[in-house]
Design a protein around this nucleic acid. Sequence first.
DNA 1: AATTACGATATGTATGTACATAATTGTCAA
DNA 2: TTGACAATTATGTACATACATATCGTAATT
Lengths: 248, 248
Amino acid sequence: MSRPVVPAKDVDPVPAGIRVPNSFRAIKAEILKRISERVWLPGELIPGEEDLAREFGCARVTVNRALRELAEIGLVERKRRAGTRIAEHPLREARLEIPVVRSEVEARGAQYRFSILSRERLEAPEAMRARLDLPAGTPMLHVRCLHFADNRPWQFEDRWIHIAAVPDIADEPFERMSPNEWLVKFAPFSEMEIGLSAAAASGEEATLLAIQPGAPVFVFERTTWLIDQPITHVRMLHPQSYRMVSRF
Amino acid sequence: MSRPVVPAKDVDPVPAGIRVPNSFRAIKAEILKRISERVWLPGELIPGEEDLAREFGCARVTVNRALRELAEIGLVERKRRAGTRIAEHPLREARLEIPVVRSEVEARGAQYRFSILSRERLEAPEAMRARLDLPAGTPMLHVRCLHFADNRPWQFEDRWIHIAAVPDIADEPFERMSPNEWLVKFAPFSEMEIGLSAAAASGEEATLLAIQPGAPVFVFERTTWLIDQPITHVRMLHPQSYRMVSRF
DNA sequence: AATTACGATATGTATGTACATAATTGTCAA
DNA sequence: TTGACAATTATGTACATACATATCGTAATT
């Protein structure tokens, strides 16, 4: 009955009182194994922390941590009085790395360069006001910027910045640092919303990206807030060759 | 100096020895606050767990948990002997919800329906073998499926399933449940890789999705594993109107 | 000077214990 | 029958303590 949790070559039970380092990982692995071998089926209630701790010869807190981390990635579901059960629909979310354009380009061994197309101080247009929940007449900075990889257009960035949220940016000419990098460096944010879609390039967009009008583009939009003050909204267009990947 | 961490209305210091429930959340929040208020700048080394524990009047383990969770979302970076520092490029990843087609459609108040276009048992083709790291001749199930929202094409799904990893699927006719739902329900996975891109619809794809050939489509690819056994690879095509959103 | 060994240090994790909290179940009364 | 409330129970979290482990700086060795 007692099934010890020593990492690899568990031959005999762990004597009670001996501390096995990393045992919470071993427990995670063991539970994962039981799920994969269908010892425990989706939807099934598994033994309580107390029982598992006894079975694995460890403290309840250790089992707790293992289960908590499994719950974080969605493999099990836990409820207080009800216990822990294997998730019916395991793993519902992926982590997506938010790239910094320059690093992304350089990571591919390409030469990075950017060019500011326009930079204007304007009152927030209707659509942006609505999206960011700002009052009429709020001063904003509108920047359009083209990023290159080895002198080929990589990304067209169309950005609106809420000046009051990052006053220092008002005087920034973006000569050496792109708005992207500047904001990443100086404007921390706590919340973000991203949108991903495909679209057909407009005439202007096609010209900028050196593709045919109507050709598919990958659209990545992002809005960020600090606490609840909007900072910036950006729409980034990539030619279709672009691909965003996330593994975990 | 001593700055108590009581959740909301902390007026006076927490007497040592009093246990503040959820204090690790409060500590997380306080550290977040210090980052956003630029008390601690990106790249800066922050005080050690021991010191913070003393300052916050709690146990080191509690600070540890707060910092560990902040490290998980990329806001701070930790190294053993070196201590904890504020990340230079804070918040680099977003959580992306992986949708279940049916729920996604129904969540928009639309009628869901799907249709199996083809279902064949084949040996893994070269590209799939390479991608999933399977030996030649591995039996796989190839399923093509069209999902509808209110009878309009919503998603074209092209899926390869590693039969040995989910033997039960061999006899599944997918009459009532789509492959998507079936796998979500019966084939838990622990790892996944996703790819997002834009593409031009091929002739066949255009016909299926009822759009013009060459029109932009949003491509969502996903490969899943359980431990290190590949389960399935799927390529999902959406007409350009599709938009994937994530807020956090 | 380059290499190795070692001690110091900050984080990482395990344990036993105690109490907190949410959710279910049972109980009693209206 | 039903609604309010208390008891129960599994998970959630805190704490003190102890040991584990990675890594940095420094001293000893080559």
